[in-house]
Structures are given as structure tokens and as C-alpha cells.
Design a protein around this nucleic acid. Structure first.
Lengths: 140, 140
DNA sequence: TAGCACCTTCGAGTAACACGAAGTCAATAG
DNA sequence: CTATTGACTTCGTGTTACTCGAAGGTGCTA
């Protein structure tokens, strides 16, 4: 049984956000101790972890809430829940591709600035020149 | 020379967002026609593309604005701009790793729901069981 | 018994859009 | 020649998801 602070650190969220999510009902299994403090057991940590992933893959708080409600309704909602995950799976794959492009972009720009600072090439780093530069790099 | 609508479609942004960014000064090279309409040439498209990547990798509008100002100040700011890109490069790599984890998570959950629907395994899909499930999958 | 760390609720503030209203302007259709 | 269409403009409010800080309760330690 761990506290808000601990679970926040564990999942790399702020304490405020953890409380925000629990207050919205996104962690139905959460408990309270005799002093009304939030306590997370393994089940609650799993819920919160799932919520975090769903959120990061683009679901709104409201949509996550609906998913949680479906879970609480029981097995009859499994087909709907499956549809939700298919959609989130699709989004996660799109996000992965976009993340790869960003890495490529940043790697290229950082490398370019490095070369300028080492007098390898002249300054044409302004974004106005970026496409040109990208084409040069891409054609290498 | 293309319009707001066209560049928005091209970069997959809303027209509102494009205007928002240009009004904040994030695309310094943007032009206007005789009727005061925004017009994007290649340089402006490059700026906007760069702004989009910086934003997606976690920079605030304010921070991007500062970067744009550094660009406009000339070559003397190259070391600072290099530092900015090193940081964004680092963030982009972290994001890539997170995106991979999300894909893994979503693939696993979608697969799990698929199996339940095909009566392969019983229902233990509630997040309360997710860690257990992940361990099982991981140990396969 | 005082201080400290940690928790609580509550309420206000913020970033980045998202959206709609109202108006301008140029081209085309009748 | 007028009128409608459609894309653009500015302006201003609304929304989401935090983010922060204040004010206060509780229990442990010195």
C-alpha cells in the first residue's frame, strides 16, 4: 500500500495529477486509510498505469472515464473495450512513426549546428534553409 | 505561395493553429498579399515545419518564440541554438522510447481482448490484473 | 509541545488551442 | 449589375488538462 507521493514518483507524474485522476474516478480500486489518505495497492497501481498509457496515446479524460465504466460493467462490454484498444493501438503506432521523424529531425539539426560550431560548414541554419538542407542530407 | 488552408492541410494542423502560430511571430518570414492575407513561401513552410517539430518535442510556444528570436539575431547566437537542439534531441529520443512502450502495451491489450473474444482465455482484462498479465506475457 | 513532513480539500490560474461571430474581398452565376 | 459563394480576416470567449498555492488535519520525532 503506497501513497500518492510514491506512486507519483513511480509513474513519473506529479502528485497533483495523481489526485486529479483519482478524483475523476479513473482509479476505481483506490482505498483510503482511517485519516482519509489515498492508498494504492497493486491493483490501483495497475489501473493508474493503464490510465497513463491511454492518456498518452491520445484519449481524453472523459473517454478514459467511459472506458473505466465499461470495465466496471462487466464482461458484456468486452467487445466495446476491444474496439477502444484497437483504436488506441492504431494511434500508438502512428505516434511511434511521428516520434521517429522527430528524432531524425533533431538528430539532423543538432549535427548541423555541431558542424557549424566546428567550422565544417557555413551558417545556413535558419529554418528558411531547412528544407534545402534536408534535401542535401537526404540525397547523400 | 500557398494559403493558410493549404499549409494547414499540408502539415496536418488546423487553420486556427496556423494563424495562432503566425500571430505569435513563430514564422517571421511570412508574407501578406494586397488584401492582407497570409501567404507562405518555401521559407515560411520550413519555419512552420520546424516550429511544429519543436512543439511536438515538448517546447512551449514561449520557448519556441525565444528560439526564433535567437535565429533572427544572427550567427552570434549559434552556440545557444545548438544547446536548444541538444536538449530537444534528448527529449525526442526519450519520447521515442515511450512511444515504443505504448505500442507494446496497446499491442498486448488488443491481442488479449482478441483472445478473450475468441474464447481462448478467460476474462482477466481489468487493469487490476494487468500487471499479472504482463508478467505472464513477458515470461513467455 | 513544538516542529516537521506529509497528507487533505478547495479554488483560482495557465497554456494551447478550439470555435464561432462578424466583417472584408474577389470571383463567378444569373 | 447584383448576389451569392467561399476563403480569408480579427476579435473574443470556451474548453481541457493540468498546475499551483493556500489553509488545514494528522502523526511522528526531539
Amino acid at each position: 500500500m503506497i501513497t500518492v507521493k510514491e506512486v507519483a514518483e513511480m509513474l513519473n507524474m506529479t502528485e497533483h495529477t495523481v489526485r486529479f485522476y483519482t478524483d475523476k474516478g479513473l482509479v476505481p480500486s483506490i482505498k483510503r486509510d482511517k485519516n482519509n489518505k489515498r492508498l494504492f495497492d497493486d491493483e490501483s497501481i495497475n489501473w493508474l498505469t493503464g490510465v497513463k498509457y491511454l492518456k498518452e496515446s491520445g484519449m481524453s479524460i472523459e473517454a478514459i472515464k467511459e472506458y473505466v465504466n465499461l470495465c466496471l460493467e462487466g464482461e458484456s462490454t468486452i467487445p466495446q473495450r476491444y474496439e477502444i484498444f484497437l483504436e488506441q493501438q492504431r494511434k500508438a503506432h502512428v505516434q511511434l512513426e511521428e516520434a521517429k521523424k522527430r528524432v531524425q529531425f533533431m538528430d539532423q539539426k543538432a549535427e548541423h549546428y555541431y558542424q557549424i560550431l566546428n567550422k565544417v560548414i557555413p551558417d545556413n541554419m535558419n529554418p528558411g534553409e531547412w528544407r534545402k538542407e534536408s534535401q542535401i542530407v537526404a540525397s547523400k
